[in-house]
Amino acid sequence: MDDRHMQIGEVASRTELSLRTIRHYEETGLVTPSARSQGGFRLYTEADVARLMVIRRMKPLGFTLDQMRDLLDATDRLDSGSALAEGEREELLDRVRGYERTATEQVDRLRTQLTRAEDFAATLAARLNRATTRP
């Protein structure tokens, strides 16, 4: 993995999150800068960017900060390479599966909303077309 450090502005640009949002996620414990420069600037790695992208993708699906924290904790523990207690790995995988199910359900709801919105926009466009083509 890339060990290069980035300042918060580059991370904001790459993740399309505002500086304020990234700082908020830091304050709430969702992400922690990997290092600080001598001048005290936050420094992030690719792993930090990947973590922020998980958060960014969860937000529009309606996940709470606590749910984000719980999922990140589960994936961190699964990815740590540390030995897990008996049954712990399966419990963590079950938690991740639950989030995957919830995300899929929310995507389906959003697809339905998008279809309805597109139908409404098409109805308005057709109405305007009829109104503007009449003599």
Rank of each mutant, 00 (worst) to 15 (best):
L72F: 03
D66A: 14
T21M: 14
D79S: 13
P33Y: 10
I55M: 07
I55F: 02
A83K: 10
M68K: 01
R36M: 09
V49H: 01
R69M: 01
E16N: 14
Q67H: 05
S80H: 04
Y25K: 05
D66S: 10
D79H: 06
L52P: 00
D76K: 06
A74P: 04
E16P: 00
R20E: 13
Y44E: 01
T75A: 03
A50M: 12
D73P: 00
Q67P: 06
G29R: 06
L19N: 14
G39S: 15
S37H: 09
Q38K: 15
D70I: 00
T64R: 10
G29C: 08
R69E: 03
T75L: 05
R69H: 10
T45D: 07
E46K: 13
I55Q: 03
G39M: 10
R42K: 12
Y25Q: 07
L65W: 05
G62A: 07
S80F: 06
G81P: 02
V49G: 02
D79M: 08
L71W: 02
A83G: 12
L30R: 07
I55R: 03
L19W: 00
R42D: 04
A35I: 08
A50K: 15
R20N: 10
I55W: 01
G39L: 10
V31I: 15
L52W: 00
A47G: 13
R69D: 08
R57V: 00
R77M: 09
S80Y: 05
Y25M: 09
T21A: 15
A83L: 09
L72Y: 04
F41A: 14
D70T: 12
Q67E: 15
T45G: 08
V49P: 02
L65Q: 05
L65P: 01
T15W: 01
F41D: 15
Q67K: 08
D76A: 13
M58W: 03
R51S: 04
E26S: 11
H24A: 12
G40D: 14
S37V: 08
D70Q: 11
Y25G: 04
S37R: 11
E27T: 14
A47S: 15
L19R: 14
D73Q: 09
A83D: 13
R51D: 04
T28Q: 14
D79W: 00
S13F: 01
R51N: 08
G29Y: 06
H24L: 14
L72K: 03
R20L: 07
T75P: 00
